[in-house]
Design a binder for these strands. Structure first.
Lengths: 112, 112
DNA sequence: CATAAATACATAAGTAAATTATGCATTAGT
DNA sequence: ACTAATGCATAATTTACTTATGTATTTATG
């Protein structure tokens, strides 16, 4: 786990990017996907995730579909066309930010 | 300029890294150095910078030396040995974080 | 030569985006 | 039977900023 400040500001970008790749996902699924993909280094907290999902929905960036699985409900989120644009902008901005930070801090990241 | 959330959490890392490379720097100099090196994409605000410098000094990570230049004062900051360790950790953590985010978001950063 | 911009410090009030804590309910594992 | 995992949600608190304000000197500009 990284010191919490670092991850700040990346939550929306992560959510939107994963939803551009996955058609639809539910909250808990997002937490597990991120945990798996980062080897546990990034763990989305529910207190941050759910309010953010609600906000993105209210802004028309995501739509929802509630599905009953057995007796338990799942709230699937899907990205809208306008959401895709925002996702793309967010990812581009983050990419640019990384390049800037690499220059500024003189980093040598080992890219797989 | 990046959306402000992104830069959050990087301020200490930036300050410490620059001070490992520069022997001593004063606050305003830090703002200009970062502005120059990032083509204006990152601009440290005084309201964030000075309190952070004071905190780092109180923690024994930085030491200060006040110098009079003409009639104006400059407060130079220098990093201590223990500060260097922390700087190194911060930079390593950030490097790791970038690598993780590149994987997670499937980024292709163009490195100079 | 007056005025604005740059240099140089500092602090206080307000805000955004998290964390932490708590709650409810179902299902799977031991 | 009890605990951990699945799955949602919200409220209180904290953190790390931004914005605003203040003081003072030096340099550039019309």
């Amino acid at each position: 786990m990284y010191s919490s400040e670092l991850i700040k500001g990346t939550l929306k970008t992560i959510i939107l990017k994963l939803l551009t790749e996955n058609e639809k996902m539910y909250g808990y699924e997002l937490t597990q996907k991120v945990k798996d993909m980062t080897g546990g280094k990034i763990q989305l907290t529910e207190g941050a995730l759910y309010p953010t999902l609600h906000a993105l929905q209210n802004q028309g960036i995501l739509t929802t579909e509630v599905v009953n699985v057995g007796n338990r409900l799942r709230k699937y989120y899907a990205i809208t066309p306008s959401g895709r644009e925002i996702a793309s902008e967010k990812v581009n901005e983050f990419t640019d930010f990384i390049a800037t930070m690499i220059t500024l801090l003189d980093l040598k990241p080992n890219l797989g």
